[in-house]
Design a protein around this nucleic acid. Structure first.
Lengths: 327, 327
DNA sequence: TTGAAAGCGCTACCAA
DNA sequence: TTGGTAGCGCTTTCAA
């Protein structure tokens, strides 16, 4: 391992000068800088981040907490986060938490032990071990959190309900995501707001998780436990797809007999037969803007826009009935 | 921040004793150990990994290089990796490389600057900046690499071709994944091996990437550039789905007029209409076993099983024609 | 069995 | 403008 001492020796200057030259801090004469640069190049030297981090009590690492890396929504967020932090010279320490709050706390501890510069989390809840690490919440947020980036879940819920109503819903089933996840709760509110306004009857089917593996059995359960519904607002695209698949198995036609709307606009949703109508939220952008916010929080003390809300849009495809233009 | 000094002071022993007690190294009397444990608990002390890593010249971090976190295959691998390294007390530094070899080298440098314990990579190619970090390749491997975990791509290719033939393929299109990706190349060989054996005519449509965003336009291109094919071996499930969607748009019936087989058995592939027939490879297990292999390489010097191959299976669903039992 | 002290590679203070 | 040096929190000699 080549160190700053090797560079100093080769350049014929002190380690202090090398350090100043590398960090553009303090005074360095042009000739000294040149000697250092030459030596750095010759030795192919890159400073050890661990040593730097030990001294600064702060590393160039950012902790990323995800509820489920297997759910396509989160890799999209992660990519946005990564792109942004990379531009600023940070790297990501990954923590896939799986709804396990012990695991979450364990990760927070690991983050702290590694002098993390900040943490960005799409996991619901206020971590205990957070100490005073800069912290930004994504998507699954709560009221007390100071820095958050999320999309307009209430509007998303409204849009979904409105679209279903436009498809002449007589009786709708709302598959509501986990009760402890803010985004689900708010969407549900949005759904109800519109459904109530138009006095369309609905039933709520509460799901415990967004996990992909549960989608199929949940779809079955919906059909087994509920009846005579002609419209479903699914908790996300995967659950919507599972529901459509189950409907097909039971000989129910989509959208004629049963219309379905998803949430998230996952990459494959447009490739279904029929292509899934859904609410799109800008996952990549949530990640990117969240990371940007975190960087700003870490670098300055004052940040103007602390709680950022991004728009959602209805993506009309073919799992909803056509609006009856003649009524 | 509470340090080992605080613990030492509270326990009434020296920092050396605290260190020994924490690491179970060297002699520590029972009474000293008890005092230390009590102090540790009282102060809620966790050792700083950065300091430890600086001294050891080795951190508890493992670098994970992924070609595209957005492709569901890789999060599945990542989860396997994470589960395994967690059990052994390591955490993951994430590097999403996007087929950009500069980015890959940049990450390797960052890994090195952070005293990484090892790296695990699903990216094709032999990194230059690898120095002597323990290194395990996953899925996209090559001959020179010492430690690899992958699935039986040749068999996968054969299985896909055989299944297509069983569905009475007259003329098949092979969508071959990127030429520089080993897994694609080997699968293609497997395809050809069987197709040639049965003298079934085929054309190869070379794709440049596995990237999700390109799936739709690739599907269009296949139909625009090629004709009179009745079977497609897609490079993965996403591309298979995109192809089916495009076929439907063009009024082509699947599987009657066009049969399609995918690769990877992504989580949503069974929820399509019709459900996608595909080749399943154990992504999670590839990740898990790869991480296990890496840990063994890092901990001991001798590892018996250096190149691990995992099985693949044909998942029959409904995008292939039935085998004609009467022929 | 214990503790003092050196030192991992770096930054920043302070004196020159 | 420069360099010597202390010290970040930890582990590991080595002497007691």
């Amino acid at each position: 391992m080549t160190t700053i001492r090797d560079v100093a020796k080769l350049a014929g200057v002190s380690v202090a000068t090398v350090s100043r030259a590398l960090n553009n801090s303090g005074y360095v004469s042009i000739s000294a800088r040149e000697k250092v640069e030459k030596a750095v190049k010759e030795l192919n030297f890159y400073p050890n981040e661990v040593a730097r981090s030990l001294f600064q009590k702060k590393s160039k690492l950012i902790g990323l907490l995800l509820p489920d890396i297997t759910n396509p929504f989160f890799p999209a967020i992660a990519k946005g986060v990564e792109d942004c932090v990379n531009e600023r010279g940070y790297s990501l320490l990954l923590g896939n938490v799986e709804g396990d709050s012990e695991k979450q706390e364990k990760y927070l501890r690991i983050f702290e032990q590694n002098n993390i510069a900040g943490v960005i989390s799409a996991v619901q809840g206020n971590p205990i071990n957070l100490k005073n690490m800069p912290f930004v919440s994504l998507d699954r947020i709560n009221e007390e959190q100071k820095y958050v980036v999320h999309s307009d879940d209430f509007l998303g819920g409204q849009l979904a309900a409105q679209a279903i109503i436009d498809g002449r819903a007589k009786k709708v089933v709302i598959m509501a995501g986990p009760e402890n996840v803010s985004a689900s709760k708010v969407r549900l509110k949005g759904n109800k707001d519109i459904l109530d306004r138009y006095a369309v009857p609905y039933e709520i089917f509460q799901t415990e998780s967004f996990h992909l593996d549960l989608a199929e059995e949940t779809a079955k359960a919906v059909f087994n436990q509920l009846s005579e519904f002609d419209s479903v607002i699914a908790s996300n695209d995967i659950y919507g797809l599972a529901l459509i698949t189950e409907a097909h198995k039971r000989g129910i036609k989509v959208p004629e007999e049963l219309q379905v709307i998803g949430y998230d606009d996952m990459p494959f949703s447009k490739m279904m037969t029929p292509p899934l109508t859904t609410i799109s939220q800008p996952a990549y952008e949530i990640g990117y803007k969240g990371a940007k916010l975190l960087c700003n929080v870490m670098e300055r003390d004052s940040v103007t826009e602390k709680r950022i809300q991004l728009p959602v849009t209805l993506i009309k495809r073919e799992t909803l009935r056509e609006k009856d233009e003649h009524e």
